[in-house]
Design a protein around this nucleic acid. Sequence first.
DNA 1: CCAGGTCAAGGGAGT
DNA 2: ACTCCCTTGACCTGG
Length: 326
Amino acid sequence: MRSIRKGTFEAGGEAVIAEVILHNLQILQKTLEWNLDNDIRAFRIGSELFPWMGHYSVEKLERFKEIEYECAYTGEFARENGIRLSFHPGPFNVLCSPDPAVVAKTTKELEAHSEIFDLMGYTPSFDTKINIHVGGAYGDKEGALETWTQNYRRLSASLRKRLVIENDDKRSMYSVKDLYGLHELCDGELPITFDYFHHSLHPDGLSEEAALGVAVSTWPTDVVPVTHYSESRRLEYQSIIEQIFQNNFMNLQEDLHKWPTLQLYYDQWSMIKENAHSDYVNRLPETYGHQIDVMLEAKAKDRALLAVREGVESIEEGRRTFTEVI
DNA sequence: CCAGGTCAAGGGAGT
DNA sequence: ACTCCCTTGACCTGG
């Protein structure tokens, strides 16, 4: 896909936008065809599909008819082949911000995502979800959730039938338990996307099974709930280092001064944050009997999915990538 | 031509 | 005050 830098957008305006959108729609179509060939039936579309989408009205773009046609074609292709599409707008979308300008920008951008699904011919449904996080706590979760709810009520009905909320990985932010409260504040409309990895970092007293059950209960019965799955990058790199040096990580830490290369790897490892996502995954999550869709949030994306399907050890794949980088 | 630095946006945590 | 992490690779410039 192509994207557009600020300067280019300001200089070229909407003329350059239409050209890039049409290019990106072609790439999306090719991607979905590749996915279908590889039996990948769920896809998160990158928001760069329509660069700067919150900054113009799609209907008023020149070449709108062409854009409309390509969107409709891709939507029909996805529906006919049972490919489930979704969006995950960036972390800059904060509906509970104390700054009205941030809320206004967020609203525009979320509505724009919803309009793209409209152009693709989708009836508003959580089947084609638009997934975000609450985004801020400001030391007052209850107050922030109240603000979030007020701004949520101002969104279009179409968007509200697509918008879903995901649990966070920090204790200062929103657990599944917190989000269930928000779900109720929003009149039971807002489903929760259960993220396994985030939950493990911020369980808030709920077991994985209980939290998944709570999240699943927030989805309409005629829509398959979506979950996110990834693993710890820190642990992944530990395993890679253990493989390379044929020793366990605890022992290796005592030998750092003997091996400059080991020290280099160790220094890189120590910079990795607890909540960073792995390139690959070793396993798929427990579903506890629920019928759910699982989206991999592994950095290597489709390569991670193909690897875990093939039963290839993620350590081996990851090691290859790691050594190439080094 | 290529590698490396840079790039719209909000917020929280760690150093 | 700065970097990483959530999201994502493409854009752009200097050599």
